[in-house]
Simulated assay, not measured.
Amino acid sequence: MEIKRISGNANMYTSDDIAELCGCSKNKAYNIIRALNHKLISLGTPKEALIAGKISRKFFHEHIKI
């Protein structure tokens, strides 16, 4: 499956990208991103380094296994 990119960071997924990849609603995609961002914080990533509503593509694929 190919994600269409108009602009933005190619290393990050947005809620729209997650919704398309997972076949879920945008609201559920936000919940997935929020949970993964909390996991990053628990692993030691500074909260200030995270962007609300976005998640690293690499981290997403490592933890979701798709």
Rank of each mutant, 00 (worst) to 15 (best):
M1D: 10
E2T: 06
I3A: 02
K4S: 07
K4I: 14
R5Q: 02
R5C: 02
I6D: 11
I6M: 03
I6N: 05
I6G: 01
S7L: 02
G8Y: 02
G8R: 01
N9S: 10
N9R: 06
A10W: 00
A10Q: 01
A10M: 00
N11Q: 05
T14C: 13
S15P: 09
S15W: 09
D16M: 10
D17T: 01
D17G: 07
I18F: 12
I18H: 14
A19Q: 07
A19L: 09
A19M: 10
A19S: 15
E20Q: 13
E20Y: 11
C22T: 02
G23H: 08
C24V: 15
S25H: 08
S25A: 08
K26T: 09
N27M: 10
N27I: 13
A29Y: 06
Y30W: 10
N31D: 12
I32R: 00
I33H: 11
I33F: 04
I33C: 09
R34N: 14
R34E: 15
R34P: 03
A35H: 00
A35W: 01
A35C: 06
L36Q: 08
N37R: 13
N37S: 13
K39E: 12
K39V: 03
K39H: 11
K39F: 06
I41E: 12
I41Q: 05
S42L: 08
L43V: 00
L43D: 09
G44H: 08
T45S: 08
T45W: 00
T45D: 05
K47A: 14
K47V: 15
K47F: 15
E48D: 11
E48F: 15
A49Y: 10
I51V: 14
G53A: 13
G53M: 11
K54C: 07
K54I: 02
K54G: 02
I55R: 01
I55S: 03
I55C: 03
S56V: 02
S56H: 01
S56D: 03
K58Y: 04
F59I: 01
F59Q: 01
F60Y: 15
F60I: 07
H61W: 05
H61F: 15
E62P: 01
E62S: 00
H63I: 05
H63A: 03
I64H: 12
I64L: 12
